[in-house]
C-alpha cells in the first residue's frame, strides 16, 4: 500500500513538475495581500486596541497560509473530475491497487505542493517584511498547514466524487469557502474585543477559526496548552473525519 501511494504520488508530482506555474499561480493571491495589505495592517494593529499579541506580520502570515491552503487544496477535486471524464479513474480502479491508495497518493501530492508554497510565502514574509517567528513555531505551523491541506484536499475529492459535475462542484465550493474563510478571520482576527458578540459566537462554530488561533500562537512562540490545545484537537479531529469521508466515498461502487 505505501508503494501504491508512492506510485500515485509520483505520477501526479511528475505532471506538476512539468508545469511549475502552479507554484506562482497559487501564491499570487497571498503575495498580493502581503504586499498591498500588510503595510496597512501594520498601522491598524499598532493603533487599534483589541488585537491579539504579536505584530502585524505574525498575525497576517498565518492567516495567508490558511488562505493559501483553502484555495490550493479545496480545488484539488477538479483533477479528479478530469480523470473521471477521461476514464483514467476507472482504468486504475480495475487494477488490484487499493482504492484508498488512489486517494492518499493524490492527497500526499497536494499536501507537498502546498507545503512548498507555504515555505516560499513564509520566506518572503521573513526576508522582505521582516517577519519574526521562532523556527520551532514555524515548523509547528507548517505541520498544521499540512493537516489543513490533507483535510481540504480529501474533502474536495470526496465532494467531487459525490457531485460528479464540473458545474455544481465549483458552485458548491465557492458557496462554502467564502463564509468559512471570512469566519476564520484570516486578515483581521475575530476576537471578543474586535468582533460583535454574535459574530464571535458564529466563528466559534468554524473549526478553522480555532486552528487559526493556534497557528498564530505558534508564530508568537507561545507553546502553552491554553494556546494550542483546542486548535490542535479540532484540527486532528476534522482531518480524521474528512479522511474517513473520502475513504468511504472512494470505496463506494461507481466512484
Amino acid at each position: 500500500m505505501p508503494r501504491e501511494i508512492w506510485l500515485v504520488f509520483r505520477r501526479h508530482m511528475a505532471v506538476s513538475l512539468r508545469n511549475p506555474a502552479w507554484v506562482i499561480v497559487g501564491l499570487t493571491q497571498p503575495i498580493l495581500y502581503l504586499v498591498l495589505f500588510g503595510p496597512l495592517m501594520e498601522r491598524i494593529v499598532s493603533s487599534t486596541p483589541g488585537f491579539p499579541q504579536g505584530d502585524a506580520w505574525q498575525i497576517l502570515t498565518p492567516g495567508l497560509l490558511v488562505q493559501l491552503s483553502l484555495f490550493g487544496s479545496l480545488f484539488a477535486g477538479f483533477s479528479l473530475l478530469a480523470d473521471l471524464t477521461t476514464g483514467v479513474l476507472e482504468r486504475l480502479r480495475v487494477t488490484p491497487a487499493r482504492r484508498l491508495s488512489l486517494l492518499l497518493g493524490r492527497v500526499l501530492h497536494d499536501t507537498v505542493q502546498l507545503l512548498v508554497q507555504a515555505v516560499i510565502l513564509i520566506l518572503l514574509a521573513v526576508v522582505i517584511f521582516g517577519l519574526r517567528a521562532p523556527l520551532a513555531g514555524i515548523a509547528l505551523c507548517l505541520t498544521m498547514v499540512a493537516l489543513i491541506g490533507i483535510t481540504l484536499s480529501a474533502a474536495s475529492y470526496a465532494l467531487a466524487l459525490t457531485l460528479r459535475s464540473e458545474e455544481t462542484f465549483p458552485a458548491v465550493l465557492t458557496s462554502i469557502s467564502t463564509p468559512v474563510l471570512l469566519l476564520t478571520g484570516i486578515l483581521v482576527p475575530i476576537t471578543t474585543n474586535l468582533a460583535p458578540h454574535w459574530l464571535y459566537t458564529l466563528s466559534r462554530l468554524n473549526p478553522f477559526a480555532h486552528v487559526m488561533e493556534a497557528q498564530r500562537a505558534t508564530f508568537r512562540g507561545e507553546y502553552t496548552v491554553d494556546a494550542l490545545l483546542t486548535g490542535s484537537v479540532v484540527l486532528v479531529a476534522i482531518t480524521a473525519l474528512t479522511i474517513w469521508w473520502a475513504t468511504t466515498t472512494f470505496h463506494r461502487e461507481n466512484a
Partner: peptide
C-alpha cells in the same frame, strides 16, 4: 474501456509504468 483511460498530461512511459506496477 470503450472510451479508453489515459491521462492527457502524462507521458506514455509513465502510464505504462503505473499500470504494470499496480499489477
Amino acid at each position: 474501456a470503450q472510451g479508453g483511460g489515459t491521462a492527457y498530461e502524462c507521458r506514455v512511459r509513465e502510464e505504462i509504468e503505473i499500470q504494470g506496477r499496480f499489477y
